[in-house]
Design a protein around this nucleic acid. Structure first.
Lengths: 109, 109
DNA sequence: AATTGTGGTAACAAAAAGGTAACCAAACAT
DNA sequence: ATGTTTGGTTACCTTTTTGTTACCACAATT
């Protein structure tokens, strides 16, 4: 999905512009539980390629939903943390989770 | 987005599998206000091609979110109506609308 | 001296999604 | 006879998104 700073007619469209797509919701969902390193994200979302993970993280950063912290260490360490704006998406994901549990086939453990 | 009947690990992923993508949220949002004919949907979402509109409607139908009613008339008349399951997405869209209004640039009228 | 670990990037390929233009039926109005 | 109307379908093409593979830096460890 394209990222831009248009003015939207529809607030739902505006929201989906930043959280929509194949990977962003899962990335955000994983980060809801706290700061994660690049490698940790990769482990929790094993089916995403590192290239695409990088791209999606950069877009989420430029949309103000997370911040990227790079430590000057060798080997490198990079941490991703949700901004308050990113965290405020919790209620959206919560509704989606409720709906999914009630209406789709979701594995329970 | 691919439609299937997998069992999902994540309820958010399960939800986005059926409402995600470029057009489905807008289609569902428009249908929230009641039954619409194919042509009416096309008018309210002018930027979607008829081919893609047809495709998306068929997917939403096979996912159980709406029903398609075809009347045996000439010229043809086809109406699309949300199922109760489709209507129950209202709370999801509502949260997205709230977030979009609070955090993105949405034109107010 | 070679290997490991981390977080990438570059070039390229494949797949998915979306768009365009032409065409159809068949009743009705002109 | 011709055009209009509605809700499509089909073949083809372009754009967008996602994936694959190889490669890099450089300190610490073996």
């Amino acid at each position: 999905m394209k990222v831009n700073n248009e003015i939207y007619d529809c607030p739902v469209t505006a929201t989906l512009e930043v959280i929509g797509g194949k990977w962003k919701p899962i990335i955000l969902y994983v980060l809801m539980s706290g700061t994660k390193r690049f490698g940790a994200l990769s482990v929790r979302i094993p089916t995403i390629s590192r290239k695409v993970l990088t791209e999606q993280l950069r877009e989420l950063e430029s949309d103000g939903l997370l911040i990227r912290r790079q430590y000057k260490e060798i080997p490198p360490r990079v941490e991703y943390t949700l901004t308050p704006e990113g965290q405020s998406l919790w209620s959206v994901f919560n509704e989606m989770a409720i709906w999914g549990n009630n209406n789709r086939r979701v594995s329970q453990k």
